[in-house]
Design a protein around this nucleic acid. Structure first.
Ligand SMILES: Nc1nc2c(ncn2[C@H]2C[C@H](O)[C@@H](COP(=O)(O)OP(=O)(O)OP(=O)(O)O)O2)c(=O)[nH]1
Ligand SMILES: [Mg+2]
Ligand SMILES: [Mg+2]
Ligand SMILES: [Zn+2]
Length: 565
DNA sequence: GCCGTTTTCGGCCCGACTGTTTTCAGTCG
């Protein structure tokens, strides 16, 4: 798939054009790049079917550039720009405080092409001498370079939770803060978050900002003002705080929750209706310019003739248009889930017993769970191996079933291997539910999966792309083909709730939601991890899922199609 | 360069903070 490749070229072109101070084209190229990046099909397929211009933001010009690149592997326009401006735009502008204008100036005046050049120029004190720059700008660049070195990857949503509650606690302990909400990508429940964004009201904004910037773990204050401050705390994590009047709370929430593209879309819509939308409110543009709405989010959306859009949907993937037409989904909620169909115990690599898991599941109010320990092919120390091991496991599950007020299904997480799965038929025949997973690199994985779907009574295909966020890329599978096959064989796809997995990813969940049923599972390896369910729910919501799209919102009687018998 | 419940031409989101400036451009959210 060349989607990413082409998107990256267009992003780079946008950068070059921005340096050249070309108006509006950067915006056009970025828009096209974003569409191509988030495309749910192969751009070469779209090209073959002559549908390139159907892509949002792709017109005649960009269409021709895509064609040129696909046909020749080369894009003259891009090569020319690169020759003209041989700078690493992405790397340079990733330094805090450096944008296109600075890149241009540093290239023209000091021949800075990349980070190394930048560092050298700053260390030698050359930047401070430039017109429009000074001692401080140079120091800031040096600081930015240092930050970029420690600055790690985006943090997992799951890792952010404890940090967020700690920060919230500290702010609410302060006498200067009133309302406090964590917004940005955290509120939208993106799988990873770039920073922590906080919206607050205060009885004394200046004192509040003072206190915030002097928290003990603050290592650097990036900016500090009456309404907005940014700090870096340990590990290079950035925290942005915005303080706003109570009466602007709703519009402030919309602004700071984002996403950026959602905001722009709402603001465009406002303009078309002769309104102006900013973080302070929605205003009429003409006459008295009076305020129409601002106190709560619902008011603002309503004034724009939109249904309330839940934060998880605010990614500009069609939610504004859906909200105009009353076509937003009624999103699944955590209380809709009746059982968890993927968990491990100390019979394989889990740390708790079957009984402990059942007890906790009962406490959570589940009607059913499935114990799904690994088969002998798993790369763990002591999986159940022999048929007699699995018989004992079954007996234990039967015993637990008599003790607790929920149905404990006997399942297994089978490994997909070179030929079939790691469980013999005699074991498969004992099971109530068969999960299959890919954990290894196999040749032709799509074909292997289809073969397994054909040969075994598979119920759920778990963590389908076997990704580990920030660590392992998702598998490159023919998902269209697999979804169609899964549907035919009554196989459901998992949304795995482990914070480092969140797999199937939400954008693909959204794409296939009308073709296949999903199951949201925790894949818990301990009692505690049964509470990971919320992370799976968030991703399902980001994927526009309703209760009806998810099998484990149903009663056990209605799960027949994925059970082995 | 793209696009159209106002449009095929003329818009394209809007505002806070900083540094270097003597009035604002650049960067970022
Ligand atoms: N209107 C408008 N709002 C913006 C813009 N940039 C950012 N915002 C708003 C929407 C964002 O969700 C919010 C927080 O900005 P962030 O840079 O922290 O982005 P966000 O939290 O969405 O993603 P992140 O995980 O931090 O990368 O500020 C912009 O250019 N225009
Ligand atoms: Mg953020
Ligand atoms: Mg931020
Ligand atoms: Zn598992």
């Amino acid at each position: 798939m060349k989607n990413k490749e082409i998107a990256d070229i267009f992003y780079e072109i946008a950068g070059f054009l921005e340096i050249k101070d070309v108006k509006w084209k950067p915006r056009a190229y970025r828009r096209a790049a974003r569409s191509i990046e988030t495309l749910s099909e192969d751009i070469e397929k779209i090209y073959r079917e002559k549908r390139l211009e159907d892509i949002e933001g792709v017109g005649e010009n960009i269409r021709d550039k895509i064609i040129e690149y696909l046909e020749t592997g080369h894009l003259e326009y891009y090569e020319e720009l690169k020759k003209d401006l041989p700078v690493d735009f992405d790397a340079l502008t990733s330094i805090e405080g450096i944008g296109p204008k600075t890149v241009k100036k540093l290239y023209q005046e000091l021949d800075v092409n990349d980070i190394e050049d930048l560092e050298e120029a700053a260390r030698k004190g050359k930047i401070a001498d430039l017109k429009g720059f000074g001692e401080k700008s140079e120091q800031n660049i040096l600081k930015g370079l240092d930050m970029a070195k420690i600055n790690q990857k985006r943090m997992l949503l799951g890792e952010a939770f404890p940090l967020v509650s700690d920060i919230k606690q500290r702010l609410s302990d302060s006498i200067y803060f009133d309302k406090i909400d964590v917004v940005g990508s955290f509120r939208r429940k993106k799988p990873t978050i770039g920073d922590i964004d906080i919206l607050a009201t205060s009885n004394n904004p200046e004192k509040a900002m003072e206190e915030f910037c002097n928290f003990e773990d603050v290592v650097e204050v990036l900016e500090k003002g009456k309404t907005k401050s940014s700090v870096i705390v340990s590990d290079g994590l950035e925290i942005d705080l915005r303080i706003i009047d109570n009466e602007s709370w709703g519009s402030g929430l919309i602004y700071f929750t984002g996403s950026k593209d959602h905001n722009i879309n709402l603001r465009r819509l406002s303009n078309r209706k002769s309104y102006k939308l900013n973080e302070y409110g929605l205003y009429r543009k003409e006459g008295e310019k009076e305020k129409i709405a601002s106190v709560c989010e619902k008011d603002v959306y309503k004034a724009l003739n939109l249904d309330y859009i839940p934060p998880e949907l605010r990614e500009d993937t069609g939610e504004v248009e859906a909200a105009e037409g009353g076509k937003l989904p009624k999103l699944v909620e955590i209380g809709d889930i009746r059982g968890d169909l993927h968990m491990h115990t100390n019979w394989s690599d889990g740390i708790n017993s079957i009984e402990e898991m059942a007890k906790k599941a009962e406490k959570r109010g589940y009607n059913y769970i499935a114990i799904t320990d690994h088969g002998p092919g798993a790369k763990i120390t002591d999986p159940p191996q022999s048929i007699s091991d699995w018989k004992k496991l079954k007996e234990e599950i039967t015993r637990i079933n008599e003790k607790y007020n929920l149905k404990v299904l006997f399942g297994a997480e089978a490994e997909i291997e070179k030929d079939g799965i790691d469980l013999v038929d005699e074991i498969v025949d004992m099971l109530d539910l068969l999960l299959v997973a890919l954990h290894r690199k196999l040749s032709n994985p799509t074909e292997k999966l289809i073969d397994v779907f054909n040969r075994y009574p598979v119920g759920i295909w778990v963590h389908p792309l076997n990704r580990k966020i920030n660590k392992r890329e998702p598998l490159d599978l023919n998902l269209n083909k697999l979804v169609n096959k899964a549907k035919k064989e009554n196989i459901s796809l998992e949304i795995n709730s482990q914070p480092h997995r969140l797999d199937l990813p939400w954008d693909l969940v959204k794409k296939h939601r009308n073709k296949i049923d999903y199951v949201i599972n925790t894949d818990a390896h301990s009692v505690k991890q049964l509470d990971y369910l919320k992370f799976g729910i968030y991703q399902a919501r980001r994927g526009w899922l309703e209760k009806e799209n998810i099998l484990n919102t149903r009663k056990l009687d209605n799960l027949q199609k994925i059970l082995t018998k």
